[in-house]
Design a protein around this nucleic acid. Structure first.
Length: 725
RNA sequence: GGAUUCGUAGCUCAGUUGGUUAGAGCGUUGCAUUGACAUUGCAAAGGUCAGAGGUUCGAAUCCUCUCGGAUCCACCA
């Protein structure tokens, strides 16, 4: 054995050997208990991030349970990541002076598909280099035909059940990206904008958006506001830049008497609050802004101008006509921006598909309340409830091409929709007209990934693993993904006729890890240029050191900053393990001992031993129990810390030093064979306990020291107890 | 505005249901060592556990407030 452990070449070789022997796949013949995790689908366009390395938590669980003898499945997959990917692709187009409008939708789709296919595999390589024992034979993709089929099925079922409806509602629309977004995809930014005080007949009101006044359908005041009582219910005549018009004054408690003048213009088509008011008061919705961000004919001579230009022009015109009372130039407010292109989100009315979330909420809350799904760490339970509580109906249509087309066809004759489970219908289901056309929109990416556990297990013929044991992911997508999976997962099972509530849920445990920041505690982001690729660290420190560093010293669910000193310490630890093996090899020779057969704790105790050996057996067994319990509790932090501390500062520093001394003293003489057996057996126990954390070096040592034909990855976990997951 | 969370040695962080001298890694200092270990071993220094008050026989740990940081949600003309 080399003096120093060098992982280069070793890791790749061992990974290949494991994979070739099929150790990553469930054992078909095994009738034992199932244990399964589905890897959160990674972005198919190849975007890397450190979250992927944190999936080491899953590998630890998988290896641990595999060694415990359970039938284990860890299933990888990729996500087409609709908006994300199309956005990246459009940026590429822009670099060559093109835009999506230069291509028809089918061509654009094909181009993106090719682009994605070229970039696939990057993340897979990364996951492999980290040693993840994923069953690659079952890898799925959200655009696989059989997955898409299930997505269609679910849509149709929801539609048939009346849980999906088509409605014109105000949506978050980005006029630059040409699509609507869910509330989650809007980011807010504080800005200083002028607040215009506009004369509205006898009233004055404050607004930041004078250009939308052509879409006003009322003026509102607070019902308790004495100042304006006499106007409520009346029509007032107002002068505008386009001439005189009448406006009704309504009373609504949403008006804050203290803000501005206490008078608000109501523009239902371009403001979310106004939209709500319009529903309460039956006000008409007048749209004055087009989907490309220009003003429409309602804006008269301002038609065709972009919103920003129009605002300026209108204000100038109003000033000329003395319709502006005054302007507050220092008004600070928050405006919604597109999370992708950072342009202002324009609230626009648009016909979209929505899922009625109300009926789905109850089951998702109940599953956690009843303890069918457990969330770790527990602190995220509150967040979970809060998220569900705030859920509004889910807009699942996106006006982009990169995604799964919505299987709905509209009739030109009767205007009704025909929904199928994928196949194009010949005629309208309502009036039998053949003049039908498919909705050009695609599904929100999360609608497909929200069905991931059932879809992947069904299509890989692995339904016996449903529900999965653990869903492990970053806490940042608890809202976007985990909650939706819970809702859709339960819905699908109920719809399949599954009545047992324990079988309806998609997973029994939710485990959430924290985020990895850069060494200065700053969030890694491409724009800041502080992104670190885990593969580079694996090259430098070895996968084992990276893995150990990520779970050591950080409580589950807490963020951590990448620490080079820690990585270094962990690399030294793998080297320490290696040298412990060298010592054993050496002492073996000195003691004229040729490899031991292994003994379990009970067998060891039956040997004739000195007091010291006996004590160490007890200590290692206690450690085994401790580590087992900690992993069961998802406390990888303490499991790894205890392993580190014991292995190095107890086992190596005290026990091995003692053994070394004893063998040296009895050099060439008769080292008690029992002592050698204890030494080798206990060291092997440590290797096994450490294997889920540092799989490569432990496997390599196992091969070197004992040269057996079997592998540590499928060896028996040293501590027995009833497995609970 | 609502909620969550954090503020522990120079740095990065642990601290499980409140219980004796508050822990680790890295760093620092001293000694030893190259006969398992790009070393490693032994030892040391270093903390008013953000601040104030309260509950308790006893609090870093529970409660209240203040200060400071982070995140999530709601987004008001």
């Amino acid at each position: 054995m080399d003096k120093v452990y060098n992982q280069k070449g070793v890791e790749e070789r061992i990974y290949r050997q494991w994979e070739e022997r099929g150790y990553f796949s469930p054992n078909k013949d095994k009738t034992g208990k199932e244990y399964s995790i589905i890897l959160p689908p990674t972005n198919a366009n190849g975007a890397l991030h450190f979250g992927h390395a944190m999936y080491v938590v899953e590998d630890i669980l998988i290896r641990f349970h595999r060694m415990k003898g359970l039938n284990v499945l860890w299933l990888p997959g990729t996500d087409h990541a609709g908006i994300e990917t199309q956005f990246v692709f459009e940026k590429k187009l822009k670099e060559i002076g093109k835009s999506r409008f230069d291509f028809d939708k089918d061509t654009l789709y094909e181009m993106i598909k090719q682009y994605v296919d070229q970039n696939r595999g990057g993340i897979e390589k990364q996951l492999r280099s980290l040693g993840f024992s994923l069953d690659w034979t079952k890898e799925k993709y959200t655009l696989d035909e059989d997955i898409v089929k299930i997505v269609y099925d679910t849509f149709k079922k929801l539609f048939d059940d009346g849980l999906i409806y088509r409605a014109e509602k105000l949506v978050n629309y980005c006029t630059f990206d040409g699509t609507s977004f869910s509330d989650l995809e809007v980011v807010y930014e504080e800005r200083k904008d002028p607040l215009y005080y506009i004369k509205y007949g006898p009233l004055v009101l404050a607004t930041t958006r004078p250009e939308t006044k052509f879409g006003d359908t009322a003026v509102a005041v607070n019902p308790d506001d004495q100042r304006f009582r006499k106007y409520i219910g009346k029509e007032i005549e107002i002068e505008t830049v386009l001439g005189k018009t009448n406006m009704k004054v309504i009373a609504d408690k949403m008006v804050d008497m203290g803000f501005g003048t206490g008078v608000v213009k109501i523009t239902p088509a371009h403001d979310f609050d106004d939209y709500e008011v319009s529903l309460r008061h039956n006000l008409p919705m007048v749209r004055v802004i087009n989907y490309d961000g220009t003003m429409n004919e309602k804006a008269g001579k301002f038609k065709g101008m972009y919103v920003k230009q129009a605002r300026k022009a209108i204000v100038e015109e109003m000033q000329k006509k003395e319709l502006i009372d005054h302007i507050d130039e220092n008004y600070v407010h928050r405006i919604g921006l597109c999370y992708k292109c950072k342009n202002p989100i324009e609230p626009l009315p648009l016909e979209q598909w929505f899922i009625n979330m109300q009926p789905l909420k109850k089951d998702a809350v109940g599953a956690v309340k009843k303890g069918l799904i457990k969330i770790h760490p527990k602190k995220f339970e509150k967040t979970y409830y809060q998220i569900i509580d705030n859920y509004k109906d889910w807009n699942i249509s996106r006006q982009i091409v990169w995604g799964i087309k919505i299987p709905a066809w509209k009739c030109r004759e009767c205007q009704k929709w025909t929904v199928t489970n994928g196949e194009a219908p010949e005629k309208c289901a309502n009036c039998a007209s053949k003049k039908i056309f498919q909705d050009p929109d695609t599904f929100d990416t999360w609608f497909s990934s929200g069905q991931w556990p059932y879809a992947t297990l069904k299509t890989t013929n692995s339904l016996k693993f449903y529900p999965t044991s653990v869903m492990e992911t970053g806490y940042d997508i608890l809202r976007a993904w985990v909650v939706r999976m819970t809702m859709l997962g339960i819905y699908i099972q109920k719809r399949l006729g599954v009545e047992n509530k324990e079988k309806q849920i998609p997973f029994r445990n939710v485990v959430l890890h924290g985020l990895v920041n850069d060494p200065f505690g700053k969030k890694m982001s491409k724009s800041k240029g502080n992104v670190i690729n885990p593969i580079d660290l694996v090259d430098q420190y070895g996968a084992d050191a990276v893995r150990f560093a990520l779970v050591y010293g950080t409580a589950l669910g807490n963020d951590q900053s990448l620490s080079y000193p820690k990585l270094d310490a962990m690399r030294k630890f793998t080297n320490k393990l290696w040298n412990m093996a060298r010592l054993i090899e050496l002492k073996r020779a000195q003691a004229k001992w040729s490899s031991a057969s292994f003994y379990g704790f009970d067998d060891l105790r039956n040997l004739k031993l000195n007091k010291s050996d006996k004590e160490w057996i007890e200590k290692v067994e206690a450690l085994s129990e401790n580590v087992t319990k900690l992993i069961d509790k998802y406390d990888f932090n303490h499991a790894s810390q205890n392993l580190y501390e014991f292995t190095w500062h107890q086992f190596a520093d005290i026990y091995l030093e003692d053994v070394k001394k004893r063998i040296n003293e009895e050099f060439n003489a008769s080292i008690d064979p029992a002592s050698m057996i204890v030494l080798e057996s206990l060291y092997l126990v440590l290797l096994k306990l450490l294997h889920p954390f540092v799989p490569f070096v432990t496997e390599e040592i196992y091969k070197r020291l004992w040269g057996k034909d079997d592998y540590l990855i499928v060896s028996k976990w040293p501590y027995d107890e009833k497995t609970k997951d």
